[in-house]
Simulated scan of single mutants.
Amino acid sequence: MQEHSLYKEKSIKGRYINADSIQGCFEKVRSPLIPIGNSVKGIALHAFTLGKGPKKILMWSQMHGNESTTTKAVWDMVNFLESEDKMAVEILQKCTLMVVPMLNPDGAAAYTRENNNEIDLNRDAKNLSQPESIALRQLFDAFQPDFCFNLHDQRTLFSAGQNNRPATVSFLSPASKPERDITPNREMAMKLIVAMNRRLQNIIPGQVGRYDDGFNDNCVGDTFQMLGVPTVLFEAGHFPNDYEREKTREFIFISLVEALLTIAKEEIEMFKTDDYFSIPNNYKLFFDVLVKNPKLVNDAFAIEQSVGIRFKEVLDGKTIVFRPEIAEIGVLEGFYGHQTIECIDTKDFGFSFERQEILDLLREFKN
């Protein structure tokens, strides 16, 4: 496969991606835009198709407005598929893609998970109370896909297994009933995930996780799986020092292309369901900063236990600011930090995020 850099959509980057951000991307799509509805605030929702093959794949991104990494990767994928690469040509000959690059533009504008009515669209599959949910379901019914790709981001707290490897990419084949049986369509989604994992292990070994498969019929993926369509949940997670998720977008791009190639080449049955279960589960073992033995000697200040700090993502204008917050204080054995500080004095706070902000946070807690 060609280098991601050749297809990376340079007009969008960073964490804040709203409807205005992708207008230029829409203008480059060769096929006509398909209006599928409007958001609560009246922003038009659009889909478009790529390819003319018999295998139909429906994919949607930014169902949660503050989960933008997969949106960037989708546009990178579009650039690849509209190239002259022989693999892109084969995919478009064998597959028809229906793409919704932003399902929740109101949430994207406000950088919130929910839509403008403060409803989580991924918990609205049963009630269909929101116009965005209705638009996706009507598109699903009309398109009648053979596969669905549900594209999301996950927080930095997840590890891939019970170790110090971050879950940079995670997948799930959702359950279609409380018993979590392996139905034929769920098994097909599992095998497709195995194909993507095999590719990713060559690039980010040990950094692929398996998302929790607890059944919830209000979730869109579970619902579509119930309706007999193999559905894959993609979760774009953390890569070291990549809070803008520009590296993670590359891994999602690679995953998308690998999945499409596997479908186009009819190679799904080459993979084994057992290998899906060998992908380690996600665990919530990471802090953004783990401070061990935090002492401010000159100020006669000390916290005797470790401090776990997580960043809150805050929209400031059109920029996402990462503000530290104390998440947990304790022994914290078995937990990890994307940055870990073993310190005995203020001079030991030598890490890339604002030193004074962490110090002030610890002082505020002590007082």
Rank of each mutant, 00 (worst) to 15 (best):
F251K: 14
V291M: 14
I182G: 07
G228L: 12
F335D: 03
F335H: 09
R15P: 11
A19C: 09
G330S: 06
L315D: 04
D274I: 15
Q207V: 09
K312S: 13
D141Y: 08
W60H: 10
I303W: 01
G214A: 14
D360V: 07
L45A: 05
N66T: 03
D20Q: 14
M196D: 08
F349L: 06
A264T: 02
H64Q: 12
V307C: 02
A259G: 12
K247M: 12
L192T: 00
N367C: 11
I254L: 06
N293K: 12
N38V: 14
E267S: 14
T340H: 06
G308S: 06
M102I: 11
I320Q: 10
A236P: 06
S5Q: 13
H152P: 10
F239N: 12
A300S: 13
R323D: 03
Q356S: 03
I12D: 12
L136C: 07
F351V: 13
L58H: 03
L315W: 04
L103D: 02
H338R: 02
E250D: 02
V74G: 01
T71A: 09
L157D: 13
F253K: 01
I119F: 04
T346V: 15
V40H: 01
I329D: 00
K126A: 07
D222L: 06
L128C: 04
T248M: 05
P32L: 00
M87F: 15
I309W: 10
I252G: 13
F234Q: 03
D217Q: 13
G317R: 11
V74F: 09
S170K: 03
T49P: 08
G334I: 04
Q162K: 09
E114V: 11
K56T: 03
Y211Q: 05
M98Y: 11
C95F: 10
M190F: 03
V40N: 05
E325I: 10
P54V: 07
N104H: 00
L192I: 06
L285Q: 07
G337N: 01
I203W: 08
R198K: 13
G206F: 07
G51D: 01
F353Q: 13
K86C: 13
I344T: 15
L45P: 02
Y336L: 11
T96D: 01
V232L: 03
Q2M: 15
L139S: 00
Q201Y: 01
P105N: 01
D153L: 02
D242T: 06
M102H: 12
F149I: 04
S176C: 11
G317Q: 15
A108Y: 05
R113F: 07
L285H: 04
V307Q: 09
V257W: 02
I134V: 15
V208M: 09
L92C: 10
P166A: 12
N127A: 12
Q130Y: 07
R186F: 10
D212L: 06
R199C: 14
Q23K: 15
D213Y: 04
P131H: 04
F311A: 03
C95M: 12
S5R: 08
P105Q: 07
A300V: 11
S255T: 10
K55W: 06
K126D: 09
P184I: 01
Y283E: 15
S31H: 09
G334E: 13
A135C: 05
F26G: 11
N202K: 10
C219A: 10
Q93M: 03
Q93C: 09
Q356T: 10
K272D: 14
K13M: 09
N216V: 03
M77Q: 02
R113Q: 05
T340N: 01
T96N: 02
